[in-house]
Structures are given as structure tokens and as C-alpha cells.
């Protein structure tokens, strides 16, 4: 069953250099108890997709121009501020990239978790505190009763991210959005946090939208994956489809950048690949495919017209003229 459905949303930003289309007709579906990975380079629109779902697009300069976001069939676009506030932290939780600065330095972590509970449930101060302690235990923090009285600066980065997860899950949301939750952490801690997310997802059945540029994390955790480039989704499908049979040249490039993810690991270690060129400025996008200037398979059509997502029979969808031509020829 679909819990969250992002339907054709368009987000524009007014900049000094003109209008930037940050999200261009983005479609996503997240099913119950599923982990959806969203991958792409910095600035491709991953985080903006998350903020759009939360109703937190900074405005001005940002603006959700068109489209709908359905949470269990209810359209969130057009809800009043108060209605949206009821949903944030309650039905959709979110954790961020920077655990070091994402917690308020002047409140204890227990207070910050309890606040979330008090905001959305008719809980007494005491009950909220008890829930906070319970949540800390659930996210694997030892001596939760003591730690609840700690201030953020007394905890390590990994601990703080666990606290963030506790805040986000305190009200048992339907969906958890994790925006690059491990980027700022040490590698060993990253693995712990991913394990925790996986475990919580299994025990609570929360659907997770995992935003990352780490293909390895997607391979480990996600059920399905969407690849974004310059504000558009260029490829989507199950993890297996996309990682083992990437269609889009950009996806191929992303996978090629991570050595152990290549379908056939080469015997000899080859130099690491990279995708040539840079992400285009969003104010200067032409009519064609945004990836065309960097693409080694670009056709004449690519610079003239925008490719749309074409779905194969098994649900694997790609937006690429070259792929489309290839598939037709087979």
C-alpha cells in the first residue's frame, strides 16, 4: 500500500539570475514498510524533495509551483500552517545531515524528545519524559535515564544522530525522511546508524525515505531507488534493477564511481572513474536533457528535447533518449 505519493511536484526558486527550477515534475511513491533511496550529486534536488514533503521549502525565495503530495491519500499541498504542523513530527519525521548542530544547545536531549511528544499527543510532562527515556533506549543509547538529562554538547556525533532519530520517531510517524543521516559521521558510526535505521524500520514498520549520495548505503538498505539529476528523476526501479542493470548513463557513472558496486569487479584495480564536467546551473537549463553536456552517449535529440520517464514492463523506468532508442532496437 502506498503511504506517501509525491505527484508531479514543481519547485521554483527566485534567484538574482532568474528563476531556478529546483524540482521539475518529480514523482515518487513510498510503500508501507519500505525504504526508498534517493541518490544524486549535491544540488540535484534530493534535499529539496524532502523539504517539500515536510512543507518546509524556504519561502521566499522558494515556491511549490504545482503538484501534490499525498500522505495516505490526503493531499498535503494546500493544508493550512497549523494542519501542516500537526503532520510534521507526528506523521512524518525527519532527521538531518548535521547531528552536531541539529540539536538545540540549551535544552537537554530528553526535553527535546519530550517536546515532540507533548506537541502531538495529549501527554503529561511526566509521561512525555518517560517516552523520551524509552525512545533513547530504543535507539540504543546506554543508561537512557541518565543520558536524557545530558545536553547535546556532552554527546558524540553518533549519539546525537541517535537522539535525532529518537525525536523523529517519538510520535510513531508513518514516514521517516533521513536526509544524508551519516554524511558527517565516522565510517564505523555510519554503519551503526544504518543498522539502527534498518532495525527500527523492521520493528516499527515505518516507511523510510533515505536521501544519500552513498550508493553503498542504498545497496545495503533500500528496497527501491530513485536517481535524481538537476531537479529531475532520471531513473527509478528496485535496487536490484538499478544497481545491477543501470540504464541511464548518469546512473552508470554513479555506480562506476564506487569500485565494489560494479557488476563485474575488474581483476586489476583500475583508476577510479569520475563523471566528467559539472552539474549545470539550474537557471541555465536549456530545452534538452540536463545531463547531455556530460554524457558520453548523447544523441542529437538529447540537446533538443527533454526525455521523459519510460517504464519497462518490470517497473524499471528511465528518462533517456539513448536508452529509449536502444530498447526499441532490441
Amino acid at each position: 500500500m502506498t503511504v506517501l505519493k509525491v505527484d508531479n511536484i514543481v519547485v521554483d526558486f527566485a534567484t538574482r539570475r532568474g528563476n531556478a527550477r529546483v524540482l521539475d515534475h518529480v514523482n515518487l511513491e513510498v510503500n508501507e514498510g519500505e525504504i526508498l533511496g534517493i541518490v544524486g550529486e549535491s544540488g540535484c534536488g534530493k534535499s529539496m524533495t524532502a523539504l517539500s514533503i515536510m512543507g518546509l521549502v524556504p519561502s521566499p525565495p522558494g515556491n511549490l509551483t504545482s503538484g501534490s503530495i499525498y500522505l495516505e491519500g490526503r493531499d498535503l499541498v494546500g493544508l493550512s500552517k497549523d494542519e501542516m504542523r500537526e503532520i510534521r513530527g507526528n506523521e512524518i519525521g525527519m532527521i538531518f545531515q548535521e547531528p552536531m548542530s541539529s540539536l538545540n544547545p540549551v535544552f537537554t536531549v530528553g526535553e527535546q524528545i519530550a517536546e515532540s511528544v507533548r506537541l502531538h499527543e495529549n501527554a503529561s510532562q511526566r509521561a512525555a519524559w518517560e517516552r523520551a527515556v524509552e525512545m533513547l533506549r530504543a535507539v540504543g543509547i546506554p543508561e537512557a535515564e541518565v543520558r536524557a538529562k545530558s545536553y547535546p554538547h556532552q554527546l558524540s556525533g553518533g549519539m546525537r544522530q541517535r537522539v535525532m532519530i529518537a525525536i523523529a520517531l517519538a510520535c510513531n510517524p508513518r514516514v521517516l525522511i533521513a536526509d544524508e543521516p551519516t554524511t558527517a559521521l565516522d565510517t564505523t558510526v555510519q554503519a551503526q546508524i544504518f543498522d539502527l535505521l534498518e532495525e527500527l524500520q523492521k520493528s516499527r514498520g515505518t516507511a523510510i525515505v533515505l536521501i544519500t549520495h552513498d550508493m553503498g548505503a542504498v545497496a545495503q538498505l533500500a528496497d527501491r531507488v530513485a536517481v535524481m539529476y538537476a531537479g529531475r528523476i532520471v531513473e527509478t526501479g528496485t535496487v536490484e534493477q538499478v544497481l545491477t542493470m543501470p540504464r541511464h548513463p548518469y546512473t552508470e557513472g554513479l555506480i562506476a564511481c564506487v569500485p565494489h558496486l560494479q557488476p563485474d569487479p575488474p581483476e586489476k584495480r583500475e583508476p577510479l572513474l569520475e563523471i566528467p564536467g559539472v552539474v549545470p546551473s539550474l537557471t541555465e537549463l536549456g530545452d534538452g536533457c540536463a545531463f547531455a553536456p556530460r554524457c558520453n552517449r548523447a544523441l542529437a535529440t538529447c540537446t533538443g528535447r527533454q526525455p521523459v520517464l519510460k517504464t519497462e514492463g518490470n517497473g524499471h523506468a528511465t528518462a533517456c533518449w539513448a536508452v529509449e532508442a536502444e530498447l526499441e532496437n532490441v
Binding site: 515536510m54 518546509l56 500552517k81 497549523d82 504542523r85 500537526e86 503532520i87 510534521r88 513530527g89 507526528n90 519525521g93 525527519m94 538531518f96 548535521e98 548542530s101 541539529s102 540539536l103 538545540n104 544547545p105 517536546e115 515532540s116 506537541l119 502531538h120 535525532m164 525525536i167 523523529a168
Partner: peptide, 22 residues
């Protein structure tokens, strides 16, 4: 503009409390 204010908003804290408390 700090991250913890974004967290507060993501928790569903009202604007009045975002300013007055956080």
C-alpha cells in the same frame, strides 16, 4: 538560520514557540 531551528520546525513546533522558546 541554524540547524536546530530547522529541527524544531520539523518537529512541528509553532512559529511563535520557534521564536520565543528555541
Amino acid at each position: 538560520g541554524s540547524d536546530y531551528i530547522r529541527t524544531a520546525r520539523a518537529k512541528g513546533v509553532s512559529e511563535r514557540k520557534v521564536y520565543g522558546r528555541h
